[in-house]
Amino acid sequence: MTERAVIDAEGLNPGDPLPRLPDHVSHGRFERVLRAGHFAVSTEIAPPDSADPEEVLRRASLFDGYVDAINATDGSGANCHMSSLGVCALLTREGYSPIIQVSCRDRNRIAIQGDLLGAAALGVCSVLCLSGDDVSVGDHPEAKPVFDFDSVSLLQTVRTLRDESRFLSGRQLDLPPRLFLGASINPFAPPYANRVDQFAKKVAAGAQFVQSQYCFDVDMAREFMARSRDLGLTEQCYVLMGVGVLASAKTAKWLKSAIPGVHIPDAIIKRLEQAEKPKAEGRRIAVELMQQLAEIEGISGIHVMAYKQEEWIGEIVTQSGVLQGRKPWAPTHLTHIKQPASA
């Protein structure tokens, strides 16, 4: 049977774009979930140190049925891995809805605009604009940092490409990239009072969804959301709060000291220290955080970051109940019928 015949018989090729719904900027499933008013769950995939496509799909399959979108990180921590564009291209072929992370550290405006067109052509529907970690914290500190843009300029650029159908130079595009536009926020680092202003700037620059840094302090999140609501930001932008899964008190202390911008209250560290099974306690903390955050008005979803504990994401999401019985899309058997027919 030819591939076309299989599709005709069994339905849409998972890699085919979905029709764009009215008032949606992208063809993507992630935007659909949020706009439909569902509580969304996203996570991130750790791109492999490998050229093996199967490894990407194996890692993604851990999330099947539990998440609405998968962030493909772009040299996170300034360490070299498979590119976010490569990971996204592999994921869209299978029908997943990846969020391509674009950092400003490694590429200038010429490269970034080209990559955004390429990503959209490969079926990527969502983008997360980041400034990026400095090269000095990664495994190639001798590299030249680019930072031609910052995250806000990058947001403006994607919006120009998409809404004005032109490059920054003014040159017209034949077909604009239909990208749902995202950014990051960190309400848990100084200057605390201005973090909501920074969020407002990102919304003004075009952010339609934001994912936050790890949230381990629900009170701080509550206060931040109250101020965001006052400024009307939650009506213009979906907020997905970041939840981390801590493996032990040692990991928590390491995160707190080694990754600037991560705030972990002492109470959480104490809980992990006193727990008989710290790993299980870390997961319990994540579940509780998700449940508490889901109660806060204006929070539209959770972004789970469980580095090296990805196999637990399903259990954590299920236990939290934030999906309210909804089962996010996952690939079916159709995924591996890629061989062209000989006939």
């Binding site: 970690d133 400095d134 930072f147 910052d150 300029s153 200057p191 600037p260 911008g261």
Partner: peptide, 30 residues
């Protein structure tokens, strides 16, 4: 700013308000 951010700060500001890249320097955007 080591990242020459024009709309800051980034998410990596230390608890004491200093830069993540240059810990001895107060964050330019703080």
């Amino acid at each position: 700013c080591p990242k020459t951010i024009r709309n800051g700060p980034c998410g990596g500001v230390r608890e004491n308000g200093h830069c993540e890249v240059k810990p001895e320097m107060r964050c330019v955007w703080v």
